[in-house]
Amino acid sequence: MAYALQQLINGVSLGMIYGLIAIGYTMVYGIIGMINFAHGDIFMVGAFLSLIGLLLITSGGMLDGTAAIILVLALSMVFTALYGWTVERVAYRPLRGSFRLAPLISAIGMSIVLQNYVQVAQGARVKPIEPVVQGGFTLMRDGSFAVQLSTMQILIITTTLAILAIFTWLVTRTPLGRAMRACEQDRRMASLLGIDTDRTISVTFVIGASLAAVAGTMYLLRYGVIDFYIGFLVGVKAFTAAVLGGIGSLPGAVLGGLLIGLIETFWSAYFSVQYKDVAAFSILILTLVFMPTGLLGRAEVEKV
């Protein structure tokens, strides 16, 4: 029982990270109907930017603890958003109106470019950091096993929930969010009503990238090691989460992220750690075969 509770806590905090990245996949799919395969690498860039920010801020000894983390988060979000914007501008916008596969291939290209760029610029070795946030609480004891809720996990869960709340408000309540939803439903019509659709699409990429940056920062702080290749595996898992939740659905992305996080954690805990990725990707296959619209996705309605 205590063991299961511990896995639940671990699973939720991992799932939050997947959920944040999955939102980026699902938003971009919703608005321009393509899978942005470079999104996982945007997450990786976000993690690296947080690493650089963290080293700059803490090595000077100016700040530490919460203030440092907030600053690092903000810096990483801003710069990663810049990367997201640039990728869209350089690799996807010139191909808009081209055949459907073109931006998809371009996205795979961007993914390789980002990986190699970081490899060359930062080196191929794994980058470890000292734990920034330590400590935690013992929730309960069961014999020799203690259920731990670390401060880091609390931080991940609360930050993610806060960011999600802001994000939900942005999409449902502001003119910007309305424009995004309008473009998602009928881009041509939105343009006829005076909405600059190119700019709205850019904003979507910027928001997606900054959420990925939050995930990158959380990943760095939680695991303490990153390398230039983390974007691939985490990215594909977040993509699985987006598909499981129903691609195009924002609540679905968060739900899918949580489920993938939980499935992966419980699988590692009760079956085998080596096969945890197999478990996650089996979900992708099962979803695609038996429930292609996902949990909260809506069926494509053919317009006549």
Binding site: P175, L176, R178, A179, R181, A182, Q185, A190, G194, I195
Partner: peptide, 28 residues
């Protein structure tokens, strides 16, 4: 925009005036 409410449809149409009045969303 079938998935949005009647009111939201009319608000989307006023996007440009709203955006200009709110400093392109930053004010919002």
């Amino acid at each position: 925009f079938a998935g949005m409410t009647a009111l939201e449809n009319l608000l989307v149409a006023q996007h440009r005036t709203l955006m200009a009045a709110t400093g392109f969303g930053i004010g919002a």
